[in-house]
Each structure stands twice: as C-alpha cells, then as structure tokens.
Amino acid sequence: MGLDIIMVTHVVELRNVKKRFGKVEALRGISFEVFEGEIFGLIGPNGAGKTTTLRIIATLVKHDEGMVKVLGYELPKFRNEVRGKIAYLPEDSRLYGRLNGWENLLYFAMIYSESKEEAIKMARLGAEISGLSWSDLMRRASEYSRGMARRIAVARTLMTKAPLVILDEPTTGLDVFSSYAIRQIIKRYARELKVTIILSSHNMLEIQDLCDRVALINKGRIVAVGTPNEIIVKAKASNLEEAFIRLVGDVSE
C-alpha cells in the first residue's frame, strides 16, 4: 500500500487582514487561504467586506494590518509582480462602449501579451470563451445587452490564463439565462485553463453550483470557511442559503 502525497499550494493567503476607511472598519482581521485550481467563493451581505477583500488581493488597495500573499508574493510590496499573474473583473465592470467586443478583448490581450501575435491569439481565445458570434463581436459594446457585455468581461479575464482570476459578483444584475451562461463559462474554462478562481456572489445557488470551497464574511469578519456541504452541516441547515442566514445572524441588522 503506497502513500499518496498531495502537494497543496496556497495561491492566496490572508492572515488577520485589517482595513479601515476613515472611521469605518471594513475588514476586522480576516484570514483564509485559496488553494491552486479551486473555485473559491466569498459570500456575505452588502457591506460585509467582500469587495475590499478582493481589491486587496487584486493589488488595488493596500491593507493596514496583517499579511496578504498572492501566488507566493507578499502584498503590497510585490504588487507589480502579482499584477501580471492575476486577472480581475470588478463588480459591475463595464466595457468600452465605443469599441466593439473584439476590440475590448484585444485591448486587454495587448496589455497581457509581449507581442501582437500573442495578443491576437489571446483575444481569439477570449472570443471563443465568450461564445459570441463574429458578427456580434463586431458590434459596438454600447449596443450589447448586459448579458452579452458580461460574457465579454468574463472572457476578458479568463483568456489571460492568469494563474489567479478574481471575479467580483460576475452575475449580479443578469437574468436567469445570462447568469446560467456565465456560470457555464466559469465552470468550463476554470477546469480547461487550469486557473484558480475567487469569486464573490449574493447568489447561494451560484456559489453552491460553482465553488469548491467558500468563506462567509460578515461585518468585516470571516464567519465560516469550508466546502458548501461542510458549512451546511456546521450550520445544521438544509441548504447554503439557510446556513448563511443562520451563521450571519439577523440580516436586518
């Protein structure tokens, strides 16, 4: 009988991270880690600190206290090194309206690439990920529906094949069909491209459907971390939504 040794690599590691904006304590010492290849969900009510956490990981915001490591690099010291290895889709991020879908992909591809050929190849992958037809890709982004625009935005992050992809509420404001399409894209290409994904969402079904592990965040603190099933069991709930409400407490607070 042999012993299988599984190497688990931390793609993201947060230890007692605090962040304050004036008098508001946005993060009150959060800790969690994200492992290579997993889809990690961050769930919590509005103002819980999800976006601030993701912005810190995406190198855009500096934390006040604690330790943040992304792909082995400590932030904010090595943020330039990290930026080339992550792709981030902010909440409600829009496309450049006067550029068409293809150009929106190509612009970001050029930023991530070392040559024009590489950029075109990357943008082609983006076009494939988006699932939009060539005629749709040639239309100005200002003419897109929310769902089409979000497909491009998600494809724009995944096409980079960045080891870490951060998606802040990628399906917010979308109808059922569009949300489903986006989830399919994330699920398929996360595996195919072998990228690690952190995403935040309000949608418990989405989290349960997509994520290997989740962290529940409330009022700047991590309430629970684990697989969706572990959290459901821990909260003695029947589903993640019920677990969320039980663990977070009175949502009307």
Partner: peptide, 13 residues
Amino acid sequence: ERKTIEALLATPI
C-alpha cells in the same frame, strides 16, 4: 464614471 478603470488598474499595465 463608466466603470472601466478598475479592471484596467488590476492589469500589469
């Protein structure tokens, strides 16, 4: 205002 800057800032540019 058009919500395009944040995604750009997180790139290696």
